[in-house]
Structures are given as C-alpha cells and as structure tokens.
Amino acid sequence: MPEDHEKLVADALRAQATSSGAHPHLPVRRARPALGAGWVLLLAVLLGLAAGTVVAVMTLR
C-alpha cells in the first residue's frame, strides 16, 4: 500500500513539473502614445511663464 502512495505522489509531481502551465490569455491594453517633444517644450514654456508671473507679482507688492 505505501508503494502505491509513493507512486501516486511521484506521478503527480512529474505531471506538475512537465505541464505547460497554460493560463488563459489576457489581452494587453494598448499603451497611450508618448508626448512629442513639441508638447513637452510648450508645457515647459507655459510653466516657466506662470512661475515668472507669480514671482513678478510677489516682487511688485
């Protein structure tokens, strides 16, 4: 009887080790396109103007 248990465990471990492990395929979400260099430059200029305006208003007061 114990030999049957050992064989059963050995067969189960062998089956687990050789299985492909296939899982259902999950669709990959499409990544958003990256911002272009022009948009980054425009945002940097606008942020600089806004910061400069705040500093100018604080200086004039």
Rank of each mutant, 00 (worst) to 15 (best):
R29H: 05
T18G: 03
L60I: 14
H5P: 07
V45H: 00
A22F: 11
T53M: 11
H25K: 09
L49C: 14
W39I: 11
L8C: 06
A10T: 12
P2F: 12
R32G: 00
P24T: 09
L26M: 13
G21M: 03
V57N: 07
T53L: 15
A22W: 11
R30C: 01
V28A: 03
L46N: 10
E3F: 12
Q16K: 01
L8K: 13
A12T: 00
L60C: 13
L13H: 05
K7F: 09
L49S: 13
H25F: 09
L26N: 04
D11N: 15
V45P: 01
E6R: 11
P33S: 06
A37Q: 11
M1E: 14
V54P: 07
H23G: 09
L60V: 14
H5G: 09
S20T: 01
V57H: 12
A17M: 07
L42G: 02
L43F: 00
L43N: 06
A15R: 01
K7A: 11
G52I: 02
A17H: 01
A37D: 11
V45W: 00
G21L: 02
P33A: 05
W39G: 10
A31E: 07
L49Y: 11
L46Q: 12
R32V: 11
A50D: 07
G48W: 04
L49A: 15
R29S: 01
V55M: 10
T18Q: 06
V40Y: 01
V28L: 05
L35T: 09
V28N: 03
V57S: 11
V54F: 01
G21S: 00
A34I: 13
G38E: 10
T59R: 15
R61V: 14
P24W: 05
T59M: 13
K7I: 10
S20H: 03
M1P: 10
M58Q: 15
L41F: 02
V40C: 08
L43V: 04
A50M: 12
L49D: 09
V9H: 03
T53V: 05
L8V: 06
A12C: 05
A51L: 15
